[in-house]
Design a protein around this nucleic acid. Sequence first.
DNA 1: GCGTGTACTTAGAATACAATTC
DNA 2: GAATTGTATTCTAAGTACACGC
Length: 568
Amino acid sequence: GSFPSLTTLMALPGMRDTQTVVKWKFLEHKGPVFAPPYEPLPSNVKFYYDGKVMRLSPEAEEVATFFAKMLDHEYTTKDIFRKNFFKDWRKEMTAEEKAKITDLKKCNFSEMNEFFKAQSEARKAMTKEEKQKIKEDNERILQEYGFCIMDNHRERIANFRIEPPGLFRGRGDHPKMGMLKRRIRPEDIIINCSKDSKHPEPPPGTRWKEVRHDNKVTWLVSWTENIQGSIKYIMLNPSSRIKGEKDWQKYETARRLKKCVDRIRNQYREDWKSKEMRIRQRAVALYFIDKLALRAGNEKEEGETADTVGCCSLRVEHIKLYPENDGQEYVVEFDFLGKDSIRYYNKVPVEKRVFKNLQLFMENKEPDDDLFDRLNTSILNKHLQELMDGLTAKVFRTYNASITLQQQLKELTNAEENIPAKILSYNRANRAVAILCNHQRAPPKTFEKSMQNLQTKIDAKREQLSDAKRELKSAKADAKVRKDEKSKKSKKAVQRIEEQLMKLEVQATDREENKQIALGTSKLNYLDPRISVAWCKKWGIPVEKIYNKTQREKFAWAIDMADEDFEF
DNA sequence: GCGTGTACTTAGAATACAATTC
DNA sequence: GAATTGTATTCTAAGTACACGC
């Protein structure tokens, strides 16, 4: 195919991308789809305060329903969530409501909660025709609002629906959890499109906040969210040219790092000896980023978000030093909350020089002092930029993830094995990367049960196999001299069942090993898809076994591009 | 350098949908 | 054909990175 080429629009490696490069020449779209307006509850669904029925104003009622819908969620038991919710809810109340409703504990939302549960049951119980109608409506909205024209191509938009109002669900110990996320109106919306396009119309009787024509950015719509005051964007789907080229560029940068990573490693090892503290800190931090695939660790505003860290923002309290541990020398124990408040726990032996440096960095410091007090991401990235054009801290994550997949695939793939076994090897290679990048998930609620079900199936299959073998034996005995049809057939059956059993066993292993590991994130964001495509071609595995439809669309450029001897 | 604002990528959970089982 | 289970998709929060003004 023709996808993609380095167009004149594309940034060259290392070229500053923001505010520098023209991203498109023509952009036309229909604007966002707004959240449906609030529908007041039927009058038989009651809210009780202090045991007595109370009728709420529509504004207060809407916010109450947000809480009522979440009653079964752990969030609603958390003090901070309740406190933030109640404070914001009161802002929406009338003076009378405010005077009366002074204690969240006295609020009874259970009828509301029941109502929404019943509603979702009713939705499930709809007839085929009703479901079909909804599907068609959605399809029409998708066709109208879900696509834009960018430079002669009709491209899929990722999130063309505006986020509906609700209660903010921060991850981890978020100080703002439970706050009211307000409804977004046309007056909040900035539209970005080209001057010579047909501009999207705001809903009747409303206006946009602004219509601008900035072709140095890729977004179509933006608004400012009220919880953190940050900007939200509507952008294109990962299958679009603009995202695909950027993705490709990302992996090309990582491949350039491959060429000079030895030099960089030698450099930072030298820097461990520097007489300048800032250089030693920089060198030890970079070592962690490289060896452990830690994130850069930007500073964050205290009290605005959950307390999480990355490499540069590590504090003394996040590591422990063991001169000797379980027979290993110079062990560092990491224990901190990273992005999304996912815990990072790891015990790693390090070089003596690193260990000594860490001792030095921690000297005379309090637990909540910065480990690298002379370093931040901006200093680190400036240094990296000097080592390689376009190099930043996150490139190491991409590089180490991709190179690990390639190595692991080489190591684990066994030419003799069948396709399911090879796919298990692929998943194991993928898993090695997910572990490196600390991509965890909560074990699925039904995990134990689903393992049990699988085991039951395996047992049944084993039973079936021994039956089939017995059958084969007796068929052979019957056959006397020449092999007859019956024994041939029995043999086939045994083979078929053996294969099925093997497939089930492989599936069980895979699932067990995956209990707390999330493979999707690395597959989607860190692994050069050309490695996987090449592997599929080399071993005759259909690419559909590795990538589902959406993933194949996102990685169309790689599926097009890579042949079986692609090397990352 | 330092604080602030913007644009974009990366992340796990929630939900919708499809496949399978009973 | 209803219920259950597994997978794909959607959602939106939470990161990284860098420009800009001082």
